[in-house]
Protein backbone atom coordinates (compact mmCIF):
# COMPACT_ATOMS: atom_id res chain seq x y z
CA UNK A 1 0.00 0.00 0.00
CA UNK A 2 2.78 2.36 0.99
CA UNK A 3 4.57 1.58 -2.28
CA UNK A 4 1.51 2.27 -4.36
CA UNK A 5 0.90 5.66 -2.89
CA UNK A 6 3.47 7.67 -4.89
CA UNK A 7 2.51 5.87 -8.10
CA UNK A 8 -1.14 6.68 -7.60
CA UNK A 9 -0.33 10.31 -6.90
CA UNK A 10 1.89 10.56 -9.92
CA UNK A 11 -0.87 9.08 -12.04
CA UNK A 12 -3.40 11.46 -10.64
CA UNK A 13 -1.16 14.40 -11.36
CA UNK A 14 -0.73 13.13 -14.87
CA UNK A 15 -4.49 12.87 -15.29
CA UNK A 16 -5.05 16.30 -13.89
CA UNK A 17 -2.41 17.84 -16.04
CA UNK A 18 -3.77 20.16 -18.67
CA UNK A 19 -4.14 18.34 -21.96
CA UNK A 20 -5.43 21.20 -24.11
CA UNK A 21 -2.35 21.41 -26.33
CA UNK A 22 -2.30 17.69 -26.90
CA UNK A 23 -6.00 17.65 -27.79
CA UNK A 24 -5.47 20.39 -30.36
CA UNK A 25 -2.60 18.48 -31.98
CA UNK A 26 -4.65 15.27 -32.14
CA UNK A 27 -7.57 17.19 -33.62
CA UNK A 28 -5.42 18.70 -36.38
CA UNK A 29 -3.91 15.28 -37.08
CA UNK A 30 -7.40 13.78 -37.37
CA UNK A 31 -8.49 16.51 -39.82
CA UNK A 32 -5.36 16.01 -41.93
CA UNK A 33 -5.84 12.22 -41.98
CA UNK A 34 -9.49 12.62 -42.97
CA UNK A 35 -8.51 14.77 -45.96
CA UNK A 36 -5.73 12.29 -46.78
CA UNK A 37 -8.04 9.28 -46.84
CA UNK A 38 -10.53 11.22 -48.98
CA UNK A 39 -7.84 12.09 -51.52
CA UNK A 40 -6.31 8.60 -51.41
CA UNK A 41 -9.69 7.10 -52.34
CA UNK A 42 -9.62 9.27 -55.49
CA UNK A 43 -6.02 8.59 -56.40
CA UNK A 44 -5.38 5.93 -59.04
CA UNK A 45 -4.09 2.94 -57.09
CA UNK A 46 -3.70 -0.70 -58.15
CA UNK A 47 -6.61 -2.98 -57.25
CA UNK A 48 -6.99 -3.85 -53.61
CA UNK A 49 -4.81 -0.99 -52.41
CA UNK A 50 -7.70 1.36 -51.82
CA UNK A 51 -9.10 -0.92 -49.13
CA UNK A 52 -5.71 -1.37 -47.48
CA UNK A 53 -4.86 2.35 -47.51
CA UNK A 54 -8.31 3.34 -46.20
CA UNK A 55 -8.16 0.82 -43.37
CA UNK A 56 -4.61 1.76 -42.38
CA UNK A 57 -5.57 5.45 -42.20
CA UNK A 58 -8.77 4.61 -40.27
CA UNK A 59 -6.74 2.55 -37.80
CA UNK A 60 -4.30 5.42 -37.33
CA UNK A 61 -7.17 7.83 -36.67
CA UNK A 62 -8.85 5.38 -34.33
CA UNK A 63 -5.62 4.91 -32.39
CA UNK A 64 -5.27 8.68 -31.95
CA UNK A 65 -8.83 8.91 -30.60
CA UNK A 66 -8.46 5.93 -28.26
CA UNK A 67 -5.01 6.81 -26.94
CA UNK A 68 -5.38 10.56 -26.47
CA UNK A 69 -9.04 11.61 -26.50
CA UNK A 70 -10.01 8.52 -24.49
CA UNK A 71 -6.79 8.65 -22.42
CA UNK A 72 -5.70 5.03 -22.74
CA UNK A 73 -2.19 6.44 -23.17
CA UNK A 74 -2.00 7.47 -19.53
CA UNK A 75 -4.43 5.15 -17.82
CA UNK A 76 -4.21 2.01 -15.78
CA UNK A 77 -3.56 -1.46 -17.17
CA UNK A 78 -7.07 -2.75 -16.47
CA UNK A 79 -8.74 -0.33 -18.90
CA UNK A 80 -6.15 -1.06 -21.55
CA UNK A 81 -6.63 -4.79 -21.03
CA UNK A 82 -10.39 -4.50 -21.48
CA UNK A 83 -10.00 -2.58 -24.73
CA UNK A 84 -7.22 -4.83 -26.04
CA UNK A 85 -9.41 -7.88 -25.31
CA UNK A 86 -12.25 -6.38 -27.30
CA UNK A 87 -9.83 -5.86 -30.21
CA UNK A 88 -8.81 -9.54 -30.04
CA UNK A 89 -12.44 -10.49 -30.42
CA UNK A 90 -12.86 -8.04 -33.28
CA UNK A 91 -9.96 -9.75 -35.05
CA UNK A 92 -11.40 -13.22 -34.36
CA UNK A 93 -14.89 -12.31 -35.51
CA UNK A 94 -13.91 -10.50 -38.71
CA UNK A 95 -10.88 -12.69 -39.49
CA UNK A 96 -12.49 -16.10 -39.05
CA UNK A 97 -15.70 -15.09 -40.78
CA UNK A 98 -13.81 -13.85 -43.83
CA UNK A 99 -11.54 -16.90 -43.77
CA UNK A 100 -14.59 -19.13 -43.81
CA UNK A 101 -15.98 -17.37 -46.86
CA UNK A 102 -12.65 -17.23 -48.64
CA UNK A 103 -12.08 -20.98 -48.40
CA UNK A 104 -15.52 -22.25 -49.32
CA UNK A 105 -16.43 -24.82 -51.91
CA UNK A 106 -17.74 -22.67 -54.84
CA UNK A 107 -21.23 -24.19 -54.75
CA UNK A 108 -21.59 -23.09 -51.13
CA UNK A 109 -21.47 -19.45 -52.20
CA UNK A 110 -24.75 -17.73 -53.02
CA UNK A 111 -25.56 -17.38 -56.73
CA UNK A 112 -24.34 -14.21 -58.33
CA UNK A 113 -21.49 -13.80 -55.86
CA UNK A 114 -17.83 -13.65 -56.79
CA UNK A 115 -16.88 -17.18 -55.70
CA UNK A 116 -19.94 -18.94 -57.10
CA UNK A 117 -20.16 -20.88 -60.31
CA UNK A 118 -21.76 -18.91 -63.16
CA UNK A 119 -25.51 -19.41 -63.35
CA UNK A 120 -26.23 -22.49 -65.43
CA UNK A 121 -22.55 -23.47 -65.33
CA UNK A 122 -23.24 -26.26 -62.87
CA UNK A 123 -24.03 -29.54 -64.61
CA UNK A 124 -27.65 -29.64 -63.50
CA UNK A 125 -30.46 -27.10 -63.52
CA UNK A 126 -29.44 -23.40 -63.66
CA UNK A 127 -29.09 -21.55 -60.39
CA UNK A 128 -32.18 -19.63 -59.23
CA UNK A 129 -32.26 -15.93 -59.91
CA UNK A 130 -29.67 -14.06 -57.89
CA UNK A 131 -31.01 -11.84 -55.09
CA UNK A 132 -30.41 -8.28 -56.09
Amino acid sequence: MAEQEPIARAEQELEHHAHAGRYALVWIALLVLTVTTYLAARAPLPGGWHVAVALVIATAKGSLVVLFFMHLWDQRGANRLVFATSLVFVALLVGLTLLDNATRFPLANPPGSAGALPAGGANREPAPEAPR
Binding site: H19, Y23, A24, V26, W27, L30, L31, T34, K61, V65, F68, F69
Partner: peptide
Protein backbone atom coordinates in the same frame (compact mmCIF):
# COMPACT_ATOMS: atom_id res chain seq x y z
CA UNK B 1 -13.95 14.65 -35.26
CA UNK B 2 -14.35 18.29 -34.31
CA UNK B 3 -17.14 17.47 -31.86
CA UNK B 4 -14.85 14.91 -30.25
CA UNK B 5 -12.25 17.65 -29.89
CA UNK B 6 -14.70 20.01 -28.18
CA UNK B 7 -15.73 17.19 -25.81
CA UNK B 8 -12.08 16.57 -24.95
Amino acid sequence: VTSSFTVA
